[in-house]
């Protein structure tokens, strides 16, 4: 465990806490894409199946359990508790365009042609694009609450921090994970536009608004 990865994981944890904080304080899921949240549940469930047969560390198991339960809880909040504040009519990204290619890619690129390894690969590819419905929704509405943008920034920072972690592991531990690295770079790149507006507007105290 190096610091990049630790800070990356902490950023991921912070993003989920920010998301829950946003929902609880505004008592609303407005501005959040249900599709993105449902994709994250899929990502965590397919990747963390190894909880049942592969022990890495207590830290690892606790984090995995937290990510699965919290993401399911967010779905519950969106579909049940705060359902009236959810607006599916602006959450229009076609997720089948993401799921199909991810299935295909995981069948081609995996470390072993086993059910568990293909699912792992699938989850890596799916995570890299899971944020797209959310970013698409942001693009459509053109604005967002500050707290929602902090959530997205923490989520993007988590992915960005994994890149120096991989560079560190390559040089210091002689470890490389080409599938995770490729997908991780794609995932981080998707946040570039968002980060530009976040740094130039939200962190300067202005509203998150996209140019018309």
């Amino acid at each position: 465990m190096n610091l990049f990865r630790l800070f990356g994981d902490m950023s991921h944890l912070a993003s989920i806490l920010l998301l829950l904080y946003k929902i609880q304080t505004t008592r609303s899921v407005r501005g959040l894409s249900f599709k993105t949240q449902a994709l994250y549940v899929t990502v965590f469930v397919t990747r963390y199946l190894d909880l049942f047969y592969d022990y890495v560390s207590l830290y690892n198991s606790v984090m995995k359990t937290f990510f699965i339960t919290s993401s399911c809880y967010v779905l519950y909040l969106m579909k049940k508790k705060y359902r009236p504040t959810n607006d599916p009519s602006i959450d229009t990204f076609r997720v089948e365009y993401l799921l199909g290619p991810c299935v295909l890619l995981s069948l081609i690129f995996n470390y072993r042609f086993t059910f568990a390894e293909i699912l792992w690969s699938f989850s890596i590819f799916l995570e890299s694009v899971a944020i797209l419905p959310q970013l698409f929704m942001l693009q459509r509405t053109g604005e967002a609450e500050a707290i929602t943008t902090h959530y997205l920034a923490a989520l993007g920072a988590y992915r960005a921090l994994y890149i120096p972690n991989w560079i560190y592991r390559y040089w210091m531990e002689d470890q490389v994970d080409p599938i995770a690295v490729t997908a991780g770079i794609v995932q981080t790149a998707l946040y570039v536009d968002f980060f530009y507006v976040y740094f130039t507007k939200v962190l300067q105290g202005q509203r998150f608004e996209l140019p018309a």
């Binding site: 990747r47 560390s57 470390y111 792992w120 994994y162 490389v176 994970d177 995770a180």
Partner: peptide
């Protein structure tokens, strides 16, 4: 040469 990682990341 670097070896492939175990799945020890989150």
């Amino acid at each position: 040469d670097p070896v492939e990682t175990k799945h020890d990341e989150l």
